[in-house]
Design a protein around this nucleic acid. Sequence first.
DNA 1: CGCCGACTCGCCGTTTTCGGACATCAATGA
DNA 2: TCATTGATGTCCGAAAACGGCGAGTCGGCG
Lengths: 175, 175
Amino acid sequence: MSGTHALWYDEMPSPVGMLRLVADEMGLREIWFERGSHRKAAQPHWLRAPESLAAARRQLEEYFAGTRQQFDLALHPQGTPFQLAVWWELARIPYGGTISYGELARRIGQPLAMRAVGAANGRNPLPIVLPCHRVIGADGSLTGFGGGLPTKRYLLSLEDRIAHGDLFGANALAK
Amino acid sequence: MSGTHALWYDEMPSPVGMLRLVADEMGLREIWFERGSHRKAAQPHWLRAPESLAAARRQLEEYFAGTRQQFDLALHPQGTPFQLAVWWELARIPYGGTISYGELARRIGQPLAMRAVGAANGRNPLPIVLPCHRVIGADGSLTGFGGGLPTKRYLLSLEDRIAHGDLFGANALAK
DNA sequence: CGCCGACTCGCCGTTTTCGGACATCAATGA
DNA sequence: TCATTGATGTCCGAAAACGGCGAGTCGGCG
């Protein structure tokens, strides 16, 4: 019904396991962790089109290399109005920083919807690019992540190391 | 998800009121009675494309004129496996004949699903072409029709008149 | 006795409704 | 300190309701 013309996908290795990218003609649509809670199989009618996803792939590689703190990609996530509000708000959290679910709820103008924010966060179709990993519990606990808590820890540690200039990676080892 | 590329539609007058036809690149998809129980508004993204529906339109005109007893069109109804089984079975009921819901249930191999057959019949997206009007109660009552019982009566009377050679239309008038 | 209508009950796929469970958190009371 | 509670949007499974039925039963009524 929603005019789906064609979907392209590609895969790429990363420090947190294989990533699968999906895009349509409007932009990047999904990123999954190969080992993740809600991974799904590639649909038969999808087309493997590495060239269409080359830019996304390159920027992700730069991100993992620590040489990129901001993405410049056309994004086209699919969700309800509420979910989209949450997801776009994610993009405004600065690299290396964190906020709580309650704070995110406040920022989208629905201060009581912190729990719903958690649920929406859990369905973020574009992890890493829309940095849902920068949202943590009000008490500092990590609480959850689609790609697994170790991955969330890895991403936060990576950003902390780069943003705070710890070139020796000491923080990365100290939990 | 189901690769919907584009939908075309057109309208045409008929003895039972205005008809709205909808098709995709695979074939005819829906026929609604303008005055019917479950008519819906034309979706904004549909394209008015009379030329794509010219064949269907012509064959329907011939049907109402009494010069066509069988349709030769590419059909593409959307439904569950059970519904499709019921709808395709409709096409095998000969012009001018009738069977009961129970009989139709038997023909698709589920003799006890007569009631479900009734429900599926009620959602037939291609009335007239898939002749759900030829299915009536075991006791001969008409029991129901998406386009209204008068329409069902009209169609049965039309077919009866043509098939049984009553060129004077006496049956049509006698209730 | 026959015929007919009103009623009951079982059967089936689909749709709708409903109740939890969630990547939360601050306030309350024991 | 810890368990409890209420507010929020979405998804998912289970359960119930709902039909374009039909066979059987039971009273009326001639």
